[in-house]
């Protein structure tokens, strides 16, 4: 049996771990801020927008890098179903990394809010002011946030499964 001994390229590994921290922080900030009417609400909200835009920018760089640099192949003995799940889940992870900030930006546009990154620095709206559109985008943003979190948990479990149980080099290709 063959094992992938090669690793992801350094930029891919750096982007992965940096974005892992940012996205997890973002998900915690997101659910935390709507859970409170205390001073933490505006504080967390003021972090949510600039981190979201940072994630969008990093995700686009990462997508471009991924499209031009092949990932190490999965182990050849990996069951077909597991390989398919691995592939599909990575498509969805990339999709959410890009979609979530865009939905956030779009929903603030549709809600007629100024999109303030920090005081005095605003983004332009990307959608027309439409309150019903805001309603649905805001709903999707919350729902997909929870979906994103569950997917990341699954991703973590799969990584640990590769690293601790299968010990097939997949975990090391990103962590090593």
């Amino acid at each position: 049996m063959t094992h992938p001994t090669e690793r992801f390229a350094l930029p891919a590994r750096l982007l992965h771990w940096l974005m892992a921290v940012l996205i997890l922080a973002m998900l915690f900030v997101g659910v935390g801020m709507v859970s409170t009417a205390s001073q933490r609400y505006p504080e967390l909200l003021s972090w949510h927008r600039p981190i979201g835009i940072t994630i969008l920018a990093l995700a686009l760089i990462r997508l471009a890098f991924r499209l031009t640099h092949a990932a190490p192949p999965l182990p050849s003995d990996l069951p077909v179903l597991q390989a398919a799940v691995a592939k599909a889940s990575h498509y969805i992870l990339y999709g959410l990394m890009i979609a979530m900030p865009l939905i956030g930006w779009g929903m603030l546009s549709a809600g007629g809010f100024p999109i303030v990154l920090w005081k005095g620095v605003q983004l332009f709206p990307i959608l027309p002011h439409d309150v019903l559109l805001y309603g649905w985008l805001r709903y999707a943003h919350g729902l997909l946030g929870y979906a994103f979190f569950l997917l990341i948990l699954g991703h973590l479990c799969a990584a640990l499964f590769h690293g601790l149980i299968r010990r097939d080099g997949v975990f090391q290709s990103m962590a090593g």
């Binding site: 709507v34 409170t36 009417a37 205390s38 609400y41 505006p42 309150v131 309603g135 805001r138 709903y139």
Partner: peptide, 17 residues
């Protein structure tokens, strides 16, 4: 202030959808 901000946002989410 934070509570007004958070509550208006919650109300807006509901009435928008």
């Amino acid at each position: 202030l934070a509570a007004r901000s958070a509550t208006y946002a919650a109300s807006f989410r509901r009435r928008a959808i």
